[in-house]
Simulated assay, not measured.
Amino acid sequence: MSPRRLRVIARLDVKDAFLVKGIQYEGLRKLGDPHDFALRYYQQGIDELVYLDTVASLYNRSNLSGILERTTRDVFIPITAGGGVRSVEDMAALLRAGADKVAVNTAALHDPELLTRCARAFGRQCVVLSIQAKRCAGGWEAYYDNGREHSGRDVMEWAREGAERGAGEILLTSVDREGFQKGMDQDLIAAVTAQVEIPVIAAGGAQNAESLALAAENGADAVALGSALHYGKTSIPELKQALRNKGLEVRI
């Protein structure tokens, strides 16, 4: 049996022109120029980047186009961008700016057919369904607006529907674990990956190779890290070597 392959992704939350990070999306702290972080992670060997505009839904706009255009002059790996995407035209703008994939959350919850329209326009490989999951009685509920607003949708049902409607990948974030660096919600990861056949990027709480390896065992195709990288708790070379030592296949 060949070793499981795992993609290691850096997640960069952006507010205006700054890289920010909080806990459970609250108390956002400015960390610097997102381009500098993106370039550093690229040079260290990260597999992909995820850029998320944290206030795009609040202000009905995305601020990522300029950041993407700058990043793609220096960084040559797949980039997913999301935040404030409400239409096929919004997705097209991010793709033109340099994104390879576009993540959609709020608008898809309000209009699930948006996933289908985007997949028809650009191919499902470009469409990422972002799910912000919080534990509730009996399972997990999908939230939006940075984990503040209830959707009333069961995460398992929404993941299945999203895949059926055209999403080519799921970015699954545990709001309960987000920013704490104390381990991922492995039950959530296992439950969602059992529901869909499309790749799942697990996020929220990743802090070391152990948490990434557990996510892979539970079915994740990729793991996105934010705080652990931004605050220098670990590095991409260290993570990848530790993952190889655990028998996982990672890109050198």
Rank of each mutant, 00 (worst) to 15 (best):
Y41P: 06
L64H: 09
Q132M: 15
K21Y: 02
G83D: 03
R70I: 09
A81V: 11
L52V: 12
D36M: 06
L39D: 02
L31F: 15
V14A: 08
R29V: 15
L94K: 15
A224M: 04
R160G: 01
N63D: 07
A137T: 12
V155E: 10
G162P: 08
G232V: 11
M156N: 02
R165I: 06
R7Y: 00
G66F: 03
R177G: 01
L172P: 02
Q125F: 01
A103N: 12
L114I: 11
L188N: 01
G22H: 00
L6S: 00
Y42Q: 09
A81R: 12
F18V: 06
E217C: 10
L214S: 12
I9Y: 09
T71H: 05
T234R: 07
K233P: 01
Y231H: 11
G232H: 02
G84R: 11
V128L: 00
T54M: 15
D53S: 03
P199Y: 05
V20W: 14
K30G: 02
K15L: 13
T54Q: 02
Q125L: 01
V200A: 09
I23F: 08
G22W: 04
V196N: 13
A191Y: 05
L95C: 05
V85K: 06
Y41T: 02
A93N: 07
D53L: 01
V20E: 10
C136T: 05
I77H: 06
G45I: 09
A103D: 03
Y41R: 09
E238K: 14
A108Y: 03
E210R: 13
K21Q: 07
A194F: 02
A191C: 08
V127M: 12
L172N: 08
I236D: 05
N245W: 08
L225S: 06
E169P: 03
G205L: 04
T80Q: 10
A163R: 05
S151L: 05
G152F: 01
G84K: 08
R124G: 10
L114P: 02
E141T: 02
D36W: 07
A107I: 04
A81L: 13
E217Y: 12
G123Y: 02
S211Y: 01
K246V: 00
R160A: 11
S174G: 00
R251G: 10
E238Y: 10
A99S: 11
I201S: 04
G66A: 08
V200D: 00
G247W: 05
R160V: 10
V175M: 04
N105L: 12
V127H: 06
A163S: 09
